[in-house]
């Protein structure tokens, strides 16, 4: 029997981040993407102009919201991409490399988003 000591495992944390990110992405991303990427460039709605963009970002709560909107979905995506590469392409032997790249990318994106939002004037 697998009598491994019950040490702190990383999987539950990754899964919690994946789930939280999936929920945030499901609730918030479609409307943002629609307005930012489709409706505004096509002229269906007004694009957020520079003055209102800076006004929005002046609110700490907006900055916090954007931070969450960036970081959690990144961990969600990292988790899914990792498993899809692992299963879809059958490259189990590269497991560690894939995991490092995926979660590393999510950490990097989170740091960048955090830095930009924190240092925003």
């Amino acid at each position: 029997m697998d009598a491994q000591p019950t040490k702190l495992r990383i999987e539950p944390l990754l899964w919690l981040l994946f789930s939280a990110g999936g929920g945030v992405a499901a609730f918030f991303i479609p409307i943002h993407l629609f307005i930012l990427g489709i409706a505004a460039p096509l002229g269906l709605t007004k694009a957020t102009d520079y003055a209102s963009a800076t006004a929005f970002l002046a609110f700490p709560i907006v900055r916090f919201y954007l931070f969450v909107l960036c970081s959690l979905p990144l961990f969600h995506a990292a988790h899914r991409i990792r498993y899809t590469l692992y299963d879809g392409l059958q490259i189990k032997h590269l497991n560690e490399v894939i995991a490092a790249c995926c979660y590393g990318g999510a950490v990097l994106g989170t740091v960048i988003a955090g830095y930009l939002l924190w240092s925003f004037q």
Binding site: M1, D2, A3, E11, P12, W15, Y83, D87
Partner: peptide, 15 residues
């Protein structure tokens, strides 16, 4: 059952 179930080869392998 927790140590067996919480392996990567058990619940965390499921997608």
């Amino acid at each position: 059952r927790f140590p067996v179930l919480s392996q990567h080869d058990a619940i965390w392998g499921c997608t």
